[in-house]
Every structure is written in structure tokens, then in C-alpha cells.
Amino acid sequence: MQEKKNKSWLSFLLEVIVLVALFTLVQYALTVGLINQSYQINLVTMCINIILAVSLNLINGFTGQLSLGHAGFMAVGAYVSVILTNFMEMPFIIGILGGCIAAGIAGFIIGVPTLRLKGDYLAIATLAFGEIIRVVLQNIDYVNGPAGIVGITKLTSWPWLYWTAIITILVIVNLMNSSYGRAIISIREDEVASELMGINTTKYKVLAFIIGAMFAGLAGVMYAHYFYIIKPDTFSFLRSFDMVVMVVLGGLGSTTGAVIAAIFITFLTFGLQKYAAMRMVIYSLILIIVMIYRPQGLMGSKELSRKTFSRIWSGKK
């Protein structure tokens, strides 16, 4: 027992060391100028995509509620944070918290009525709400309507991006490996049975939706404070589809899969920068082919964890 405890402490320490090392390595490369401008953008997009994919996976993959409105929450986070930092000149951390909370509130407002719907109806309703957020932003003069906000101070830096992405992953992994996580997964498995086992399914669906929305908001904050400009059209349902591609490719219900897919899609987009239309053709083929031949995605619901590593280490299958 004591030995087991020591071992888990050891592997925890090892994980922290790996995470800090990875961070320091990239930070060093950035400082000495090893990473050029376009790769820097790639790095930023990657972290943002990880946050988006992992958080959407909580809703679509773990809870089993197909949402097509994630870009809407990203928009709320982006706009609210920019209002706080640029219009009201508050510190970045306030912008981050404000953006997340606002997106979470939007998630609550949208989640409560729509989560009564099932399957494809829910998908369409979330798509509609996402689009309504965009249209509303287009009609608010305070944020310059369709033209959007230009000249946002660049506050997003590597440390912010890296650690917020890590926090996102940690929160979702910890949540899912708990009684709350099991309750959430049971909704995906069989909503009626879950409810009859004493689980308030509505409450947990809304909870997953709020947490997912908050992190989408976080991604929006990071995005806005790096790319200088945001406008309503940046957050159209096509962006939501991008996120769905990542989640589907990685495997609905696998955080590891979501991270891998987010990294892969970022590089794919980067490689096909000059061929934007071709990129979308490839995306669409990924969706179709994955659904037909491997509907569980790359990872299925499997995760890479300490257990997997120790299993590989000891040569067991």
C-alpha cells in the first residue's frame, strides 16, 4: 500500500517535470527566435484548438449531446473579454475570467431550454442559437456590428496559452474520472436508465454544457488577444463544424483523441493555408470516411493514461 502511494507520487512528479520541461523548451525556442512568425501562429492556433476540441468533446463525446454551436460561446468569450480589456482597460486576468463567466452564462441560458431536445433536434437548435449570437453581435453598434473590433491589444502569450490549455485538459480529465464524470457518461449511454438510477440528467447535461461553454469562451479570449481583430463572421457555424471535425476524428469521448486531433487538424490547416477550399474538401472527407469506417474515431473512448504507459512499459497488452 505504502509502495503504491509512493509510486503514484513519483509518476505525478514525473508528469509535472515533463509538462514544465515542454513549456520551458518552447519558451526558450521562442526567446532565441528558433520559431518563426508563421510557426508561432501555428503554435497559438494549436493551443486554442486543443481548448476548443477538449471542451466540445465534453459535450458531444462524453455527454453525448451533439452541439453545433460551440463557436457562439467562443464569440461571447472573445467579445466580453475585449470589452473588459480594451474598452474598460482592465487587466488581462479580468478579461479571461469575465470572458469565461459570460460564456458560461450563455451556456446556461441556451442549455436549459435546448437540452430537453434530443439528438438531431438538439444539434439544429444549438446551431440556430450559435447563429443568433452571431447575428445579435452584428447588430450591436457598441462592438461595431459586422465590421467587428480592430486593434485589440496583444496580451496572449505562450505561458498563458500553454497553461490554460493544460488547465482545460486537467479539469476535464479530473471531472471525467469521478462520480460526476460517470454520471455524465451514463447520460450518453442510456438517458432513461441514468435518470432511473437517481441521476438528475438535466442538471448534469446543463453542467457539462456550462463547463464546455466556459472553456470555449476561454479559447475565444485567447484568440481575440492574439489575432488583433474579431468580427461576428469569425464565429459562424463553419467554425463550429471545424471543432466537430476535431472531436469526431479524435473519437467522441476521448480527451486524448481530442488533443491529438486538434494538433493534427492545426497542422493540416497550416499545410493547406494556400488552398482554403481544398482544406474544407479534406475536412468533409474526413467526416464522411471516419463516420463510415471508424465511427468511434481514432481513439474511440480510449485514453492515454499512466496505466497505459505502465502497461506498455511492462510489456503487457
Binding site: 451533439l66 438531431d120 463544424f241 466537430v244 469526431v248 475536412y283 468533409s284 467526416l287 464522411i288 463516420m291
Partner: peptide, 12 residues
């Protein structure tokens, strides 16, 4: 859901 995702794929 799988069918719906495929349909989105065909659309794109």
C-alpha cells in the same frame, strides 16, 4: 448522430 455528422460532411 453519426448519420447527421456524415450529412454535414457531404454538405461541406
Amino acid at each position: 448522430i453519426a448519420a447527421l455528422i456524415t450529412a454535414i460532411g457531404v454538405s461541406l
